[in-house]
Design a protein around this nucleic acid. Structure first.
Length: 302
DNA sequence: AATCGATTCAACCGCATCCTT
DNA sequence: CAAGGATGCGGTTGAATCGAT
Protein backbone atom coordinates (compact mmCIF):
# COMPACT_ATOMS: atom_id res chain seq x y z
CA UNK A 1 0.00 0.00 0.00
CA UNK A 2 2.96 2.23 -0.22
CA UNK A 3 2.24 4.38 2.75
CA UNK A 4 4.77 6.80 4.09
CA UNK A 5 6.54 6.14 7.34
CA UNK A 6 4.62 6.95 10.45
CA UNK A 7 6.73 9.94 11.05
CA UNK A 8 8.87 11.93 8.76
CA UNK A 9 12.45 11.52 9.72
CA UNK A 10 13.07 15.22 9.54
CA UNK A 11 13.32 16.92 12.88
CA UNK A 12 12.31 13.89 14.85
CA UNK A 13 14.35 13.43 17.95
CA UNK A 14 15.63 10.00 18.81
CA UNK A 15 17.40 8.39 21.68
CA UNK A 16 16.81 8.49 25.39
CA UNK A 17 14.01 10.59 26.76
CA UNK A 18 14.74 13.51 29.01
CA UNK A 19 12.72 14.15 32.15
CA UNK A 20 11.34 17.25 30.53
CA UNK A 21 10.01 15.24 27.64
CA UNK A 22 8.58 12.70 30.03
CA UNK A 23 6.81 15.43 31.91
CA UNK A 24 5.34 16.80 28.74
CA UNK A 25 4.12 13.42 27.72
CA UNK A 26 2.71 12.54 31.10
CA UNK A 27 0.88 15.77 31.51
CA UNK A 28 -0.56 15.39 28.05
CA UNK A 29 -1.79 11.91 28.82
CA UNK A 30 -3.15 13.14 32.11
CA UNK A 31 -5.28 15.58 30.25
CA UNK A 32 -6.28 13.59 27.22
CA UNK A 33 -5.73 10.02 28.17
CA UNK A 34 -3.62 7.53 26.26
CA UNK A 35 -4.42 7.01 22.65
CA UNK A 36 -4.47 9.23 19.61
CA UNK A 37 -0.71 9.10 19.64
CA UNK A 38 -0.55 10.69 16.29
CA UNK A 39 -1.67 13.94 17.86
CA UNK A 40 0.72 13.82 20.76
CA UNK A 41 3.81 15.28 19.11
CA UNK A 42 1.92 18.14 17.56
CA UNK A 43 -0.12 18.92 20.64
CA UNK A 44 2.73 18.71 23.07
CA UNK A 45 5.47 20.12 20.96
CA UNK A 46 7.51 17.02 21.54
CA UNK A 47 9.93 16.41 18.73
CA UNK A 48 9.18 12.74 18.89
CA UNK A 49 7.55 10.25 16.65
CA UNK A 50 4.10 9.17 17.75
CA UNK A 51 5.33 5.64 18.02
CA UNK A 52 8.08 6.74 20.28
CA UNK A 53 5.58 8.52 22.51
CA UNK A 54 3.38 5.48 22.74
CA UNK A 55 6.32 3.27 23.49
CA UNK A 56 7.63 5.58 26.13
CA UNK A 57 4.25 5.72 27.77
CA UNK A 58 3.47 2.04 27.69
CA UNK A 59 6.91 0.86 28.65
CA UNK A 60 7.99 3.41 31.16
CA UNK A 61 5.61 6.15 32.16
CA UNK A 62 2.39 4.25 32.35
CA UNK A 63 1.08 3.95 35.89
CA UNK A 64 1.27 0.72 37.76
CA UNK A 65 4.38 -0.56 36.12
CA UNK A 66 6.63 -2.73 38.18
CA UNK A 67 10.21 -2.81 37.09
CA UNK A 68 13.03 -5.20 37.66
CA UNK A 69 13.17 -7.99 40.22
CA UNK A 70 10.98 -10.58 38.64
CA UNK A 71 9.64 -12.89 41.29
CA UNK A 72 9.83 -16.61 41.02
CA UNK A 73 6.09 -16.69 40.47
CA UNK A 74 6.43 -14.32 37.61
CA UNK A 75 9.26 -16.31 36.11
CA UNK A 76 7.22 -19.46 36.25
CA UNK A 77 4.31 -17.73 34.71
CA UNK A 78 6.41 -16.37 31.90
CA UNK A 79 7.87 -19.76 31.19
CA UNK A 80 4.43 -21.29 31.15
CA UNK A 81 3.00 -18.64 28.97
CA UNK A 82 5.91 -18.61 26.61
CA UNK A 83 5.45 -22.31 26.16
CA UNK A 84 1.80 -21.78 25.48
CA UNK A 85 1.85 -18.67 23.40
CA UNK A 86 5.29 -18.51 21.94
CA UNK A 87 6.92 -15.15 21.63
CA UNK A 88 3.70 -13.26 21.86
CA UNK A 89 4.99 -10.92 24.46
CA UNK A 90 2.03 -8.63 24.48
CA UNK A 91 -0.27 -11.53 25.16
CA UNK A 92 2.04 -12.77 27.87
CA UNK A 93 2.23 -9.33 29.37
CA UNK A 94 -1.51 -9.23 29.61
CA UNK A 95 -1.26 -11.94 32.22
CA UNK A 96 1.37 -10.05 34.13
CA UNK A 97 -0.47 -6.81 34.54
CA UNK A 98 2.34 -4.86 36.07
CA UNK A 99 4.89 -5.84 33.49
CA UNK A 100 5.34 -4.51 30.03
CA UNK A 101 5.79 -6.68 27.01
CA UNK A 102 9.16 -5.11 26.41
CA UNK A 103 10.23 -5.88 29.94
CA UNK A 104 9.11 -9.45 29.68
CA UNK A 105 10.74 -9.84 26.32
CA UNK A 106 13.99 -8.47 27.65
CA UNK A 107 13.80 -10.64 30.72
CA UNK A 108 13.15 -13.68 28.63
CA UNK A 109 16.00 -12.96 26.28
CA UNK A 110 18.49 -12.11 28.96
CA UNK A 111 17.59 -14.37 31.84
CA UNK A 112 15.08 -17.05 31.15
CA UNK A 113 16.32 -18.17 27.78
CA UNK A 114 19.74 -18.61 29.22
CA UNK A 115 18.38 -20.41 32.22
CA UNK A 116 16.39 -22.69 30.00
CA UNK A 117 19.39 -23.39 27.87
CA UNK A 118 21.45 -24.30 30.87
CA UNK A 119 18.76 -26.58 32.10
CA UNK A 120 18.53 -28.39 28.84
CA UNK A 121 22.24 -28.42 28.37
CA UNK A 122 22.50 -30.00 31.77
CA UNK A 123 19.94 -32.61 30.98
CA UNK A 124 21.64 -33.23 27.70
CA UNK A 125 19.23 -35.88 26.65
CA UNK A 126 17.08 -36.17 23.55
CA UNK A 127 19.40 -34.47 21.18
CA UNK A 128 19.95 -31.38 23.27
CA UNK A 129 18.18 -28.93 21.09
CA UNK A 130 14.48 -28.76 21.23
CA UNK A 131 12.59 -28.21 18.04
CA UNK A 132 12.35 -24.49 17.62
CA UNK A 133 8.69 -24.11 16.83
CA UNK A 134 7.15 -27.25 15.53
CA UNK A 135 3.81 -25.73 14.88
CA UNK A 136 3.13 -22.96 12.48
CA UNK A 137 2.69 -19.56 14.00
CA UNK A 138 -0.80 -19.21 12.69
CA UNK A 139 -1.79 -22.57 14.04
CA UNK A 140 -0.60 -21.80 17.49
CA UNK A 141 -2.25 -18.44 17.37
CA UNK A 142 -5.45 -20.05 16.35
CA UNK A 143 -5.30 -22.45 19.21
CA UNK A 144 -4.59 -19.81 21.76
CA UNK A 145 -7.31 -17.66 20.39
CA UNK A 146 -9.71 -20.51 20.65
CA UNK A 147 -8.64 -20.94 24.18
CA UNK A 148 -9.05 -17.30 25.05
CA UNK A 149 -12.44 -17.21 23.43
CA UNK A 150 -13.50 -20.27 25.32
CA UNK A 151 -12.20 -18.79 28.52
CA UNK A 152 -14.00 -15.54 27.91
CA UNK A 153 -17.19 -17.40 27.28
CA UNK A 154 -16.77 -19.33 30.45
CA UNK A 155 -16.22 -16.11 32.30
CA UNK A 156 -19.29 -14.61 30.84
CA UNK A 157 -21.31 -17.54 32.06
CA UNK A 158 -19.61 -17.69 35.37
CA UNK A 159 -20.71 -15.93 38.49
CA UNK A 160 -17.22 -14.71 39.15
CA UNK A 161 -16.72 -11.96 36.65
CA UNK A 162 -13.14 -11.22 37.58
CA UNK A 163 -12.13 -14.80 38.06
CA UNK A 164 -9.71 -14.87 35.18
CA UNK A 165 -7.31 -12.48 33.63
CA UNK A 166 -9.30 -12.59 30.49
CA UNK A 167 -12.39 -11.27 32.07
CA UNK A 168 -13.23 -7.79 31.09
CA UNK A 169 -12.77 -5.98 34.32
CA UNK A 170 -15.26 -3.37 35.21
CA UNK A 171 -14.00 -0.35 37.05
CA UNK A 172 -14.33 -1.08 40.68
CA UNK A 173 -16.32 1.37 42.68
CA UNK A 174 -13.37 1.82 44.94
CA UNK A 175 -11.02 2.37 42.09
CA UNK A 176 -8.92 5.39 42.90
CA UNK A 177 -8.58 6.54 39.36
CA UNK A 178 -6.46 9.44 40.36
CA UNK A 179 -3.87 7.21 41.88
CA UNK A 180 -3.09 5.92 38.46
CA UNK A 181 -1.73 9.17 37.27
CA UNK A 182 -0.35 9.95 40.64
CA UNK A 183 1.78 6.90 40.37
CA UNK A 184 2.76 8.08 36.99
CA UNK A 185 3.86 11.30 38.53
CA UNK A 186 5.84 9.23 40.95
CA UNK A 187 7.61 7.76 38.03
CA UNK A 188 8.52 11.20 36.92
CA UNK A 189 9.57 12.15 40.38
CA UNK A 190 11.85 9.18 40.51
CA UNK A 191 13.11 10.08 37.18
CA UNK A 192 13.90 13.62 38.07
CA UNK A 193 15.54 12.59 41.25
CA UNK A 194 17.78 10.22 39.42
CA UNK A 195 18.47 12.78 36.80
CA UNK A 196 19.36 15.51 39.21
CA UNK A 197 21.61 13.33 41.26
CA UNK A 198 25.05 14.10 39.96
CA UNK A 199 27.07 11.22 38.72
CA UNK A 200 24.29 8.73 38.96
CA UNK A 201 24.96 7.54 35.49
CA UNK A 202 21.65 6.27 34.33
CA UNK A 203 19.22 8.57 35.96
CA UNK A 204 15.83 7.05 35.57
CA UNK A 205 16.50 3.43 36.09
CA UNK A 206 19.06 3.69 38.83
CA UNK A 207 16.58 4.83 41.43
CA UNK A 208 13.85 2.53 40.48
CA UNK A 209 12.93 1.43 43.93
CA UNK A 210 11.78 3.78 46.59
CA UNK A 211 12.04 7.45 46.17
CA UNK A 212 9.05 9.51 47.02
CA UNK A 213 10.01 13.05 46.29
CA UNK A 214 6.91 14.70 45.00
CA UNK A 215 8.50 17.23 42.79
CA UNK A 216 5.96 16.92 40.06
CA UNK A 217 2.46 18.11 40.13
CA UNK A 218 -0.04 15.44 40.91
CA UNK A 219 -3.34 16.38 39.49
CA UNK A 220 -6.12 14.88 41.53
CA UNK A 221 -8.55 14.59 38.70
CA UNK A 222 -8.31 12.29 35.84
CA UNK A 223 -11.87 11.46 34.94
CA UNK A 224 -11.05 7.83 34.44
CA UNK A 225 -9.42 8.13 31.10
CA UNK A 226 -7.41 5.09 31.96
CA UNK A 227 -10.02 2.51 31.34
CA UNK A 228 -12.12 4.57 29.07
CA UNK A 229 -9.86 5.95 26.46
CA UNK A 230 -7.40 3.17 26.13
CA UNK A 231 -10.04 0.69 25.23
CA UNK A 232 -12.49 3.11 23.77
CA UNK A 233 -10.19 4.25 21.05
CA UNK A 234 -9.78 0.74 19.86
CA UNK A 235 -12.86 -1.11 20.74
CA UNK A 236 -14.71 -3.53 18.61
CA UNK A 237 -13.53 -6.71 17.06
CA UNK A 238 -13.69 -10.04 18.78
CA UNK A 239 -14.00 -9.40 22.44
CA UNK A 240 -11.97 -12.35 23.52
CA UNK A 241 -9.24 -11.59 21.13
CA UNK A 242 -9.10 -8.02 22.15
CA UNK A 243 -9.08 -8.89 25.77
CA UNK A 244 -6.24 -11.25 25.33
CA UNK A 245 -4.22 -9.00 23.16
CA UNK A 246 -4.35 -5.60 24.71
CA UNK A 247 -1.90 -5.09 27.47
CA UNK A 248 -3.37 -1.68 28.02
CA UNK A 249 -6.57 -3.25 29.03
CA UNK A 250 -4.99 -5.54 31.50
CA UNK A 251 -2.76 -2.95 32.99
CA UNK A 252 -5.72 -0.83 33.63
CA UNK A 253 -7.23 -3.71 35.44
CA UNK A 254 -4.14 -4.01 37.49
CA UNK A 255 -4.46 -0.48 38.55
CA UNK A 256 -7.90 -1.22 39.70
CA UNK A 257 -7.04 -4.40 41.45
CA UNK A 258 -3.94 -3.25 43.20
CA UNK A 259 -3.58 0.43 43.32
CA UNK A 260 -1.29 0.13 46.25
CA UNK A 261 1.85 -1.69 45.43
CA UNK A 262 1.96 -5.30 46.39
CA UNK A 263 -1.59 -5.39 47.53
CA UNK A 264 -3.13 -7.65 45.00
CA UNK A 265 -0.44 -9.55 43.24
CA UNK A 266 -0.34 -12.74 45.23
CA UNK A 267 -3.95 -13.74 44.81
CA UNK A 268 -3.77 -12.88 41.18
CA UNK A 269 -0.87 -15.21 40.67
CA UNK A 270 -2.39 -18.09 42.47
CA UNK A 271 -5.42 -17.67 40.34
CA UNK A 272 -3.38 -17.52 37.21
CA UNK A 273 -1.43 -20.55 38.15
CA UNK A 274 -4.59 -22.44 38.76
CA UNK A 275 -5.84 -21.40 35.42
CA UNK A 276 -2.69 -22.43 33.70
CA UNK A 277 -2.03 -25.62 35.51
CA UNK A 278 -5.44 -26.98 36.20
CA UNK A 279 -7.60 -25.81 33.43
CA UNK A 280 -5.16 -25.33 30.63
CA UNK A 281 -3.35 -28.59 30.98
CA UNK A 282 -6.30 -30.72 30.31
CA UNK A 283 -7.19 -29.35 26.94
CA UNK A 284 -5.78 -28.21 23.70
CA UNK A 285 -2.74 -26.73 25.31
CA UNK A 286 -1.41 -30.07 26.30
CA UNK A 287 -0.31 -30.65 22.82
CA UNK A 288 1.35 -27.34 22.69
CA UNK A 289 3.11 -27.78 25.93
CA UNK A 290 4.51 -31.10 25.00
CA UNK A 291 5.34 -30.02 21.54
CA UNK A 292 7.00 -26.81 22.27
CA UNK A 293 8.65 -27.26 25.58
CA UNK A 294 9.92 -30.62 26.64
CA UNK A 295 10.23 -29.39 30.14
CA UNK A 296 7.73 -31.70 31.69
CA UNK A 297 6.80 -29.80 34.77
CA UNK A 298 8.00 -26.28 34.27
CA UNK A 299 8.35 -25.90 37.97
CA UNK A 300 11.38 -28.13 37.69
CA UNK A 301 12.86 -25.28 35.87
CA UNK A 302 13.46 -23.52 39.14
C1' DA B 1 43.66 1.84 38.29
C1' DA B 2 42.85 0.64 33.63
C1' DT B 3 41.13 -2.28 30.13
C1' DC B 4 38.15 -5.42 28.01
C1' DG B 5 34.38 -8.49 27.42
C1' DA B 6 29.69 -9.62 28.98
C1' DT B 7 25.27 -8.22 30.30
C1' DT B 8 21.26 -5.37 30.59
C1' DC B 9 17.63 -2.64 28.95
C1' DA B 10 15.57 1.48 26.67
C1' DA B 11 14.51 2.60 22.29
C1' DC B 12 14.17 2.04 17.22
C1' DC B 13 12.62 -0.28 13.00
C1' DG B 14 9.76 -2.68 9.99
C1' DC B 15 5.86 -5.40 9.44
C1' DA B 16 1.09 -6.78 10.66
C1' DT B 17 -3.33 -5.74 11.94
C1' DC B 18 -7.21 -2.96 12.72
C1' DC B 19 -10.04 0.98 11.71
C1' DT B 20 -11.91 4.64 8.94
C1' DT B 21 -13.25 6.72 4.76
C1' DC C 1 -14.62 -3.41 -1.42
C1' DA C 2 -10.33 -1.09 -1.61
C1' DA C 3 -7.12 2.28 -0.10
C1' DG C 4 -5.03 4.85 3.31
C1' DG C 5 -3.99 5.91 8.02
C1' DA C 6 -3.15 4.77 12.96
C1' DT C 7 -1.75 1.68 16.26
C1' DG C 8 0.29 -2.58 18.06
C1' DC C 9 3.76 -6.04 18.12
C1' DG C 10 8.10 -8.56 17.92
C1' DG C 11 12.90 -8.50 16.61
C1' DT C 12 16.94 -6.08 16.94
C1' DT C 13 20.33 -2.61 18.17
C1' DG C 14 23.44 0.16 20.73
C1' DA C 15 24.75 2.73 24.75
C1' DA C 16 25.35 2.25 29.62
C1' DT C 17 26.73 -0.58 33.27
C1' DC C 18 28.97 -4.40 35.56
C1' DG C 19 32.39 -7.74 36.54
C1' DA C 20 36.64 -10.07 35.67
C1' DT C 21 41.44 -9.74 34.71
Amino acid sequence: MGRPPCCDKMGVKKGPWTPEEDLMLVSYVQEHGPGNWRAVPTNTGLMRCSKSCRLRWTNYLRPGIKRGNFTEQEEKLIVHLQALLGNRWAAIASYLPKRTDNDIKNYWNTHLKKKLKNMQGGEGGAGGKRPAVPKGQWERRLQTDIHTARQALRDALSLEPSATPLAKVEPLPTAPGCATYASSADNIARLLEGWLRPGSGKGPEASGSTSTTATTRQRPQCSGEGTASASASHSGGAAANTAAQTPECSTETSKMAGSSVGAGSAPAFSMLERWLLDDGMGHAEVGLMTDVVPLGDPSEFF
